[in-house]
Nucleic acid binder design. Structure first.
Lengths: 339, 339
DNA sequence: TCATCCTGTCGAACCGGTTCGACAGGAGTT
DNA sequence: AACTCCTGTCGAACCGGTTCGACAGGATGA
């Protein structure tokens, strides 16, 4: 390993001078700069990250905490990981990715040993045990997902309440009076996935305001169960004119299911949904949907975190940010009103 | 931050004694051990990772290099990431995940600055530019995927050649004489995904040996194109009795496509495929398939890497390991022979 | 001409661990 | 009683950077 001392000797200067050339924190004559640059290139010098972290107490690494739930639809997670990684790198940070099941302990292990400068928490639940831990360590953190207690917390999520309203409004405007809502699975609720009830409650309330009958069901996440459950739901409510789906596994399987039943969209049944843009493209879903911008969420989260790291923890006030969703009309809803 | 010095002072011993208690590398009296343990707990001491890395030149971090190709079916990648992460953690290592497009530079950046103790390269192509870079840095690395030049390289992959033979044999034993093969998209070949031709060539050769007519086509990766291309292929070869699919996006869409065409499996058409177990479960695919154990690949790769890190680079000879695939019969092939 | 300021560089201390050699003192040997 | 050996602990050096204060020497100003 070639050290800063080797470079200094080669260039005939002291170690500190090399350091100042590297950081630019003090003026160094152009001639010396050139000699040092040459030495660096000739020797192939790269600063030792550990030593630098020790001296500066900055690691230029962000901790990304994610958990895989066996009962969850996996492809969704990746859509957040990529923008987090890319945004971090654009600011000179690397990503330490931890999938450990014990989140709180992980935060302390990583944080107390100073392996990272900050944390990104993915898929945060209502009473996520990681949130209090985050307050105990001295690195800042940002959440993707909304906990119940948002006091002094930096969080970002899609505005699921608004999303539900937009979709109900969309159906109401086209004269639908009875709709079926399929939400994420019930165990996601139990786990505390607040987006489930934020969307569900808002949809029910909005429907009630219009006098629309709405039948809310919990969907399934695993292949065969999805199909069975969906068929049962469709059997139960033959008069519903529209389907509102907030469940990736269900919407991915829906084209097949409807085809099997001989149901045409939108002639026989209208369908609206909520999924991320990437997801829709991946499965080329033909449904009118509110699209959650996973990229935007990940990108914004990391940008905010880095700003907070660099400007000091207290300079940037913590903030809960709800991203406004937008609807993309793909013509999967029928207008029942006389024109 | 509480340091080892604080602990030492509290326990009334020297810093080195605390260090020896932590590492167990020298005998320390039980009484002293207890005092130090108490001090550690009272003060909440956690060793600084940077300092430790500096002193030991060990970071206990592995670099995981992966690239996302926009034209690729994303869910597959995640199946490798999880076992890599879990296996690493089980051995006390964390994962630095880098998605940078410039692999060679990343390897040098991360490796030369001593941020990691070793590398895991995912989705390695035939002439992957990262492989030569891996030879230039002083950390060992392990590949998942097979490069053309396997000289002095530690790699692991599924035995795609054998997989193809197993599937052709399976169809041959049931009397099929004309089959259609759908491989991964053509741009994957251009990129150097050697698994494409390892599987394809072996299938064609094996079919030829039996005198089976085989029509090989490149599949698509994106939703709508998948369906279009598949329909076209089916139109072109109406007499084929079996379909052999080596493409995640195609096999995921196949139930829908076949249903739309009114084709029943296996009565009208036999289907065999190659996909990973997790993938099949995710989409509850009902096809007889050779299953690639992504978990096993990731797990084995990391285990080998860690052994090599700990036993010294030369102690463990580099090795190319091809995992033998196994077929799971789900009854999607019809027996055409008179019984 | 001398005090003052600025520029460029150096040496030393420091970050927080690990590890080696030294050594005190008690146990075991002869 | 003198010697050797073993156990437990300490001090100092080291890992490879950063940063602060000091200072030499030339430029500037009065």
């Amino acid at each position: 390993m070639v050290t800063i001392g080797d470079v200094a000797r080669r260039a005939g200067v002291s170690r500190s001078t090399v350091s100042y050339v590297l950081s630019g924190k003090r003026a160094i004559s152009v001639a010396t700069q050139h000699r040092i640059q040459e030495a660096i290139e000739e020797l192939g010098f790269t600063p030792n990250a550990g030593a630098r972290a020790l001296a500066t107490s900055q690691t230029m690494v962000l901790g990304l905490l994610l958990q895989f739930h066996a009962d969850e639809f996996a492809p969704a997670m990746l859509q957040y990981v990529l923008p987090v990684s890319e945004t971090a790198r654009a600011h000179g940070y690397d990503i330490l990715m931890v999938t450990d099941a014990d989140g709180p302990r992980t935060i302390h292990r990583i944080g107390d040993s100073n392996m990272v400068d900050g944390f990104v928490l993915l898929d945060v639940t209502a009473d996520d045990p990681r949130v209090p831990s985050l307050r105990e360590v001295h690195q800042p953190g940002v959440l993707i997902g909304l906990p119940r207690d948002t006091h002094e917390v930096d969080a970002i999520d899609l505005d699921f309440t608004e999303a539900a309203r937009i979709l109900v409004d969309h159906l109401h405007e086209r004269g639908h009076r009875e709709i079926v809502l399929v939400t994420p699975p019930h165990h996601v609720v139990e786990r505390g996935g607040s987006y489930v009830w934020r969307f569900r409650d808002a949809a029910i309330e909005r429907a009630a305001r219009y006098g629309i009958r709405i039948h809310a069901h919990y969907g399934e996440a695993q292949g065969s169960a999805v199909r069975r459950s969906m068929n049962q739901i469709l059997d139960t409510w033959p008069d519903a004119t529209a389907l509102m789906v907030h469940n990736d596994a269900t919407i991915a399987a829906l084209p097949t299911i409807l085809h099997e039943r001989g149901i045409r969209v939108p002639d026989d049944l209208s369908v609206v949904s909520l999924y991320s843009r990437d997801f829709g493209e991946e499965f080329s879903l033909p449904f009118t949907a509110v699209e959650s911008a996973a990229y935007e969420l990940g990108h914004t989260a990391v940008s905010r975190l880095i700003e907070r790291i660099q400007r000091g923890r207290e300079s940037v006030p913590p903030q809960v940010q709800l991203i406004a969703p937008a609807i993309t009309d793909r013509g999967s809803t029928r207008n029942l009103l006389p024109s």
